[in-house]
Design a protein around this nucleic acid. Structure first.
Length: 602
RNA sequence: GAUUCCGUAGCUCAGCUGGAUAGAGCAUCUGCCUUCUAAGCAGACGGUCAGGCGUUCGAAUCGCCUCGGAAUCGCCA
């Protein structure tokens, strides 16, 4: 944090002068001072007291005196129960604030230079093409998009990639059900979005399949066997074989239905505001990795069983044996992933490859990294599984097959509708054209949804209750958007007093009468690059969300307590307008990292 | 069964490498719009940080145990 390093150094020097003893920088704990005490930074003196052999109270006072005498920026201190609270003089805050405001580079914390030479790949979304996107996918997409933006903001070259799972038994299920029950339905003939139409037949397959297995069970066949022997399942498997053999009719159907799905996804992605630099298709990648199997066998990392299947033994690492090639010679998921990772590394030499994938695949990625390591690829540790937790409903987990999902398109539509309803009730934009109003509703509705998802740490499981719509008050996206609109409104008012505006060369450094709220606001503003740096390192959009909420909250307190535009107070008005400008800029900048837009009015 | 993750206010969530009296929002209750946007501000209420033991000057945070929940351990992806 700001001044933290300087203070730490100063404490070290002071300690050494006062007690003729050295203390490691890492042993000096500095934290922001709690709100209820006076001060900006707090030195925890317990361990220092121990080293010096005096009581915390005494050390605190002695160190405080020393700092005040020797450090220009320290204007005061107090000691409470072993905590040395340091007051940094206003001039120092203002000086740094003035410098930062005039220096674009201050707001762009740079990542470790060693990472900047090669791209960071962020793989996210990665949908199956047999069903539409649901709330779980929304979380994935929003996290992936935002993490990519965070990395960009810290200077990393980023490529967003989407690996579409466009082949496999699940796709065949939809295809088969459509053949049997579809009557030639198309998105055009039904007016349905393509992905929803295909999803309808995925659910339909499951319904028919369940009926079949139940019938078989009724005939006295065991459940497990019934599931395997059900004619529909056999048919789906046959279809997959046909597809793999390039059967024309099957491939044509597959292409047709996938095209429907892509058109649907395109609409959803656009509504979500996410994008990708590269799309990969599993149908083009699934054969990769076979040469890796051979390589592993040559290096004796893998072994072959009598039936011809290929395995890797990970028991030494505390895991199990893992299959890599079936006895019929076809590859499994992890084999493809090995091949895909290798190909990508050869092509891109990525500095990191971040997989945004749900935590149900923690084991999978552990194994993936381990196998690459065993094969001797030194880039194995550049793979990172950004594991996010499930979005649960009050009724429990979402299941596509059973239709207990919160559909992405529907949810977004509801959010926008809700935003429209609230906006109309408030009646502040009655002069907007209907198109302007629509855009605003979308911005607010999506802002609410995105903030709701992103403010929660990805690792934490979160609950969504469809009964209670997502809030627009309190700790929400619209609250922050509202703060921005409010600031813009003040600035518009200032336009009528050109002589009050801070000019191009305005510097806030000379302002003398900083009040408490302004001071807090400036401190919060200056934290930005530090928070950004950490959020980027930890892949945590939630940190940015929490940061900007706090800033908005503080701004609203300031706004409420003090007038901003006052023709009788030129210096004050300039200072405050400038502060508004910086706050608004930061809100905009931060929300953009979360994929959220800001309105001029709302 | 084994492994991993999780458990903070009625609800949804913050809480950085251990530091002061554990913070927000929602909900409930009270105030504040003839002054720059009330999607706001101020206040009240609400906690055995699942429980226990330990390490420490100090534990929501670290370790062990118990209870509760979830995920994974497929010739599915």
């Amino acid at each position: 944090m700001l001044f933290e390093r300087e203070l730490r150094d100063a404490v070290k020097r002071g300690f050494s002068q006062l007690y003729r003893a050295e203390v490691a920088l890492s042993d000096i704990a500095i934290q922001p001072t709690r709100k209820d005490f006076e001060g900006d930074l707090t030195v925890v003196v317990f361990n220092l007291a121990k080293l010096a052999g005096k009581s915390p109270e005494v050390i605190g006072n002695e160190l405080g005196e020393w700092l005040k005498a020797n450090e220009q920026e320290v204007s005061g201190f107090n000691v409470v129960k072993g905590f040395l609270n340091i007051v940094v003089q206003n001039e120092a805050w203002l000086r740094i604030y003035a410098e930062a405001a005039g220096d674009e580079s201050y707001w762009q914390k740079k990542a470790d230079a060693s990472l900047l030479a090669h791209p960071v790949l962020v793989e996210y979304s990665s949908p199956n093409t047999n069903k539409p996107l649901h709330l779980g996918h929304i979380r994935n997409n929003l996290i992936g998009y935002s993490v990519a933006e965070l990395l960009k903001a810290t200077g990393n070259p980023v490529q967003k990639v989407n690996l579409i799972n466009d082949r496999g038994i699940h796709i065949c299920k939809s295809m088969l059900a459509w053949l049997k029950k579809g009557n030639g339905e198309t998105p055009e003939s039904t007016g349905m979005k393509g992905d929803h139409l295909v999803g309808k037949y995925y659910v339909e397959f499951d319904r028919m399949y369940k009926a079949e297995t139940e019938m078989l069970v009724a005939q006295g066949i065991g459940e497990e066997e019934a599931k395997k022997k059900a004619p529909l399942m056999l048919e789906a498997q046959e279809m997959l074989r046909k597809w793999e053999n390039g059967d024309e009719e099957t491939v044509a159907l597959w292409k047709k239905m996938n095209a429907w799905v892509y058109a649907g996804f395109d609409t959803t992605y656009r509504a979500l505001g996410v994008d990708f630099d590269t799309f990969y298709y599993e149908s083009e990648m699934y054969l990769l990795g076979k040469e890796i199997v051979q390589e592993g066998l040559d290096k004796k990392v893998f072994y072959k069983k009598d039936d011809g299947s290929v395995w890797v033994d990970l028991t030494e690492e505390g895991l199990d044996e893992k299959l890599l090639l079936r006895r019929d010679g076809t590859s499994v998921y992890i084999t493809q992933d090995l091949g895909t990772a290798k190909k990508r590394y050869e092509e891109k030499k990525f500095s990191r490859l971040i997989y945004v994938v749900g935590n149900e695949q923690d084991y999978h990625f552990k194994v993936l990294r381990l196998i690459l390591k065993k094969l001797g690829y030194d880039w194995w540790n550049k793979l990172y599984h950004l594991s996010y937790n499930m979005v649960d409903l009050p009724s429990g987990k979402m299941k596509s097959r059973e239709g207990t999902v919160v559909d992405a398109d529907e949810l977004m539509e509801e959010m926008v509708e809700q935003a429209g309803k609230i906006t109309r009730e408030l009646g502040k934009i009655d002069d907007f054209t209907s198109q302007e109003a629509e855009e605003l509703y979308r911005m607010i509705g999506m802002g609410a949804l995105k903030y709701f998802i992103l403010k929660v740490d990805p690792e934490k499981r979160m609950l969504f209750n469809p009964e209670e719509s997502i809030d627009f008050n309190g700790n929400t996206g619209p609250f922050i958007q509202y703060t921005y609109a409010r600031i813009r409104s003040v600035m518009r008012k200032a336009d009528t007093y050109p002589e009050l505006r801070p000019g191009e060369n305005y510097s806030p450094a000379e302002y003398k009468v900083l009040n408490e709220k302004e001071r807090e606001l400036i401190k919060q503003l200056l934290k930005y690059p530090y928070v950004l740096g950490e959020a980027s390192e930890r892949y945590s959009p939630a940190m940015m969300a929490n940061y900007i909420y706090e800033l908005a909250r503080q701004f609203n307190q300031f706004y409420h307590e003090y007038p901003i535009v006052d023709p009788a107070e030129v210096e004050m008005t300039r200072f405050r307008l400038f502060l508004c400008q910086v706050c608004a800029g930061l809100i905009r900048r931060t929300l953009l990292l979360l994929g959220i837009g800001v309105p001029e009015r709302m």
